[in-house]
Computed example of a mutant assay.
Amino acid sequence: MLRIMRDHARKHPGLIPQFFFICLGMGGAALYLVRLAKGPHVTWNKSSNPEPWNQLSPTYQYKFLAVNTDYKNLKKEGPDF
């Protein structure tokens, strides 16, 4: 695959920035998927902890960026499991 891209870029050097940004976007998407797969609400081993999201504190910030939410003042509304 890389050989084909390299040969094509030699014939058409104007495509080099396009190849760069496509690879940059694919790498960023892969890193974001790895970040999502390691979250505390994701379980990979059902036998040791089948519901890890029940052990999170009520002040845990689930969103990547919370603009208007103050998580320190939230009250826990559900029962303890």
Score class of each variant (00 low, 15 high):
Leu15Glu: 09
Leu15Met: 10
Leu15Thr: 12
Leu15Ser: 08
Leu15Arg: 07
Leu15Ile: 14
Leu15Gly: 05
Leu15Pro: 01
Ile16Ala: 02
Ile16Ser: 01
Ile16Leu: 03
Ile16Glu: 01
Ile16Tyr: 02
Pro17Val: 10
Gln18Cys: 15
Gln18Met: 13
Gln18Ile: 15
Gln18Thr: 15
Phe19Asn: 01
Phe19Lys: 00
Phe20Asp: 04
Phe20Asn: 05
Phe20Gln: 08
Phe21Tyr: 12
Phe21Trp: 11
Phe21Pro: 01
Phe21Lys: 09
Ile22Gln: 02
Ile22Ser: 02
Ile22Asp: 01
Ile22Phe: 02
Cys23Val: 15
Cys23Ala: 14
Leu24Glu: 06
Leu24Met: 09
Leu24His: 05
Leu24Trp: 08
Gly25Val: 09
Gly25Phe: 10
Gly25Tyr: 05
Gly25Gln: 06
Gly25Trp: 05
Met26Trp: 09
Met26Lys: 05
Met26Cys: 10
Gly27Ile: 09
Gly27Cys: 09
Gly27Pro: 01
Gly27Met: 07
Gly28Val: 12
Gly28Ile: 11
Gly28Gln: 04
Gly28Met: 13
Ala29His: 08
Ala29Ile: 14
Ala29Thr: 14
Ala29Glu: 09
Ala30Asn: 08
Ala30Gly: 10
Ala30Tyr: 13
Ala30Ser: 13
Ala30Ile: 15
Ala30Trp: 12
Leu31Asn: 05
Leu31Gln: 07
Leu31Tyr: 07
Leu31Glu: 07
Leu31His: 08
Leu31Val: 13
Tyr32Asn: 12
Tyr32Phe: 15
Tyr32His: 15
Leu33Thr: 05
Leu33Gln: 06
Leu33Glu: 06
Leu33Gly: 04
Leu33Arg: 04
Val34Thr: 08
Val34Ser: 03
Val34Ile: 14
Arg35Ile: 15
Arg35Val: 15
Leu36Ile: 11
Leu36Lys: 04
Leu36Arg: 02
Leu36Asn: 03
Ala37Arg: 02
Ala37Leu: 04
Ala37Val: 04
Lys38Cys: 09
Lys38Tyr: 06
Lys38Glu: 10
Lys38Gln: 12
Lys38Ser: 10
Lys38Met: 10
Gly39Thr: 11
Gly39Asp: 07
Gly39Phe: 05
Pro40Glu: 03
Pro40Asn: 03
Pro40Met: 03
Pro40Thr: 07
His41Tyr: 13
His41Met: 14
His41Asn: 11
His41Gln: 11
His41Cys: 11
Val42Gln: 02
Val42Gly: 01
Val42Phe: 03
Val42Pro: 00
Thr43Lys: 00
Thr43Arg: 00
Thr43Tyr: 00
Thr43Glu: 00
Thr43Ser: 02
Thr43Met: 02
Trp44Lys: 08
Trp44Val: 11
Asn45Val: 15
Asn45Arg: 10
Lys46Val: 13
Lys46Tyr: 09
Lys46Arg: 11
Ser47Ala: 14
Ser47Trp: 09
Ser47Gly: 07
Ser47Tyr: 10
Ser47Val: 14
Ser48His: 08
Ser48Ala: 12
Ser48Asn: 12
Ser48Gln: 12
Ser48Gly: 07
Asn49Arg: 00
Asn49Gly: 00
Pro50Cys: 05
Pro50Thr: 04
Pro50His: 01
Pro50Phe: 00
Pro50Ile: 05
Pro50Gly: 00
Pro50Asp: 01
Pro50Ser: 03
Glu51Ser: 07
Glu51Asp: 12
Glu51Trp: 04
